[in-house]
Design a protein around this nucleic acid. Sequence first.
DNA 1: TATAAAAAATACCATACAGTATGTTTTATT
DNA 2: AATAAAACATACTGTATGGTATTTTTTATA
Lengths: 200, 200
Amino acid sequence: MQQDLKSELTKQLIIDKAFKLFHENGFKTTSIDKIMKETALSKGAFYHHYKNKKELGLEVISLKVQKRVIKSMVTPLSNTGNPLQILEHVFLDRLKSFNVYEKKHGCPMNNLINEVGDHEIAYQLALKNIIETWKMALIDLLDRGKKENTINKNISSAATAIYLISAFEGIRGIRKLYTDDTILDDYINGLSLYIKQFKI
Amino acid sequence: MQQDLKSELTKQLIIDKAFKLFHENGFKTTSIDKIMKETALSKGAFYHHYKNKKELGLEVISLKVQKRVIKSMVTPLSNTGNPLQILEHVFLDRLKSFNVYEKKHGCPMNNLINEVGDHEIAYQLALKNIIETWKMALIDLLDRGKKENTINKNISSAATAIYLISAFEGIRGIRKLYTDDTILDDYINGLSLYIKQFKI
DNA sequence: TATAAAAAATACCATACAGTATGTTTTATT
DNA sequence: AATAAAACATACTGTATGGTATTTTTTATA
């Protein structure tokens, strides 16, 4: 195999396993040893490709966590159609798409925000970047609705975007505490009611 | 000093320092050594009073984390007055009461939920208990508003309670990523608009 | 004041950790 | 085939960890 391709595959393997373990067990308590045991490669291989754990953490955020959020929560906002329907679809469909594993372990981004969001400035910036991207996309969609007269012009797009994001991330954490979906049903009802209020 | 009083004071000291360090640096990465260094006592003292770190964790949750939430977010909901005004007051006053330290390190409960909410069942139950207490108190207040004809009877009290809690906890995490309060202002505007919708 | 128990200190252990030094194997180039 | 560099493996270091064993100090009671 070509060297640069092999290198790329190895790095991708490490990132994938690291993301999985960060998601399941948290960032701080996931050691390099545990990650490399998952890859079936050695510690030497890790330090050949990465300077340290921090560098890996930042790659996991930008290559896995960010992509995940953008794919499921940002990109679909650009679809054509009624903005309010898109909003409801994106948030509700996402929640309903989660399997037991994802409900149990919560949102990878939110987990990182709460675990390392007040520690390393580098993590802070990388995570903030995701939130800002998400916020902007929501604002664009809400503004489009206002322009097309399907959304009440008196509501603040920025405030609504942040309230939507906050509630979504909040419930992803709270759901961890439960073993069934009743709390998610409450959230879903709350969200539906909330979105309906934007209508003209 | 009386023995049982001394014992009680020592335990309280350990709990206070542990809560502080959990809040600042997280649960998992706060070691017994670090806690006991803060208390200026020895490791022997710790293991005289506590069986292990888990037992301390549970005491911190029930004696510090829970008390904190109940005092600031639950008890004030029982005040007399217009339920909607009480709602707005409690949530907004709480947010506005936070100092730089509390904004930086987020909500101790939410931090724990996201860090250990999917690990130890004992932590899970202790934390869920707080959320349930909070949820019930909000439902009671909303139901009172409905009975007194100040709150729209068509909204679900449980759904509204969970949506309020989720957004509040969500923003406490997200705020960690920022160095100023603009994101909090967005949230506050979003919350005000949200609460206004409950009006008849 | 003697004695027992509680409170706290000291010293220790096995394990896990991030990271390093050095070796071996694989791949690319001449 | 020779050589160099990249990819990976092995063995190690120093430090931190949760927890234990044992000793010293403080407090309560007779």
